[in-house]
Amino acid sequence: MTALNEARALGSTKAPARPSLARTWGRAWPPLLFAAALVVLWELAVNVLGVSSYVIAKPTEILTTIVAKWQLLLEDTWVTTAEVVLGFLISIVVGIVLALLVVRFAWVERAVYPLVVLFQVVPKVALAPIFILWFGYSMTPKLVLIVVMAFFPITINMVLGLKRVDEDLLLLMKSVGSTRNQILARIQIPTALPYLFAGLRIGITLAVIGAVVAEFSGSQAGLGHRIQFASTQLDTASMFAALIVVSVLGLVLYYLVGLLEFVMRRRFPHLAATDA
């Protein structure tokens, strides 16, 4: 730590800046204020224009709905969270393993990787009904859709990172007769970590989308199911309530990924290069 302070005292610009509470607040209040103004405007507009509550719910209505139905929403949140977290964990494993295979074995890169990339043009959301058909109303089709949607950004970013080998380091490793596995473990994987995290940030948002879409297509519980069900009942306030809860869920999970990256900085300081 003293070395770090010394480096900063010497005016080193490379030392990673620690986000202070004051700075975070300084950055956070303008958008918060603007959001609050929009909510007030929304409430006033619905009142003044006399828009029907079937069309759009007022913020106060949504809030009372969340408070009144908190138990139901909590159950749905738990179901969706379980799907997203489990699906995302599988996506991470699939994404990383595929990336390692692509970089380690030339034939995987030549034969398999192009197909994986090509598969991305398929609108994966449209696969949800097929997965329901195959796997029924259980958790499985949700997990499958989440993995299909979320593994790709993880893989493609990780491959990019793994290929970012410092040519000089490679030469140095070869000068001591290192094996390819040693180079992969000691140099490539740690080098790829910032890229992996960039992929994880995209992946987690896609995982939430995957869960909600899969629930739309067929489910008995979950926040996506709640939105779908409320829609058939013309219960607009409940739709908005579930929408807000699922958005907060997505935000929390996104920041958990950021938190993991922040914690790993202790061991891998080069992760500071991709600050959120």
């Binding site: 410092d166 000089d168 380091l169 030469l171 140095l172 000691r186 140099i187 740690p190 061991r267 891998f268 300081p269 080069h270």
Partner: peptide, 9 residues
């Protein structure tokens, strides 16, 4: 080599 090529972590 010309560049130090150190592992940043």
């Amino acid at each position: 080599l010309q560049r130090p090529a150190l592992l940043p972590w």
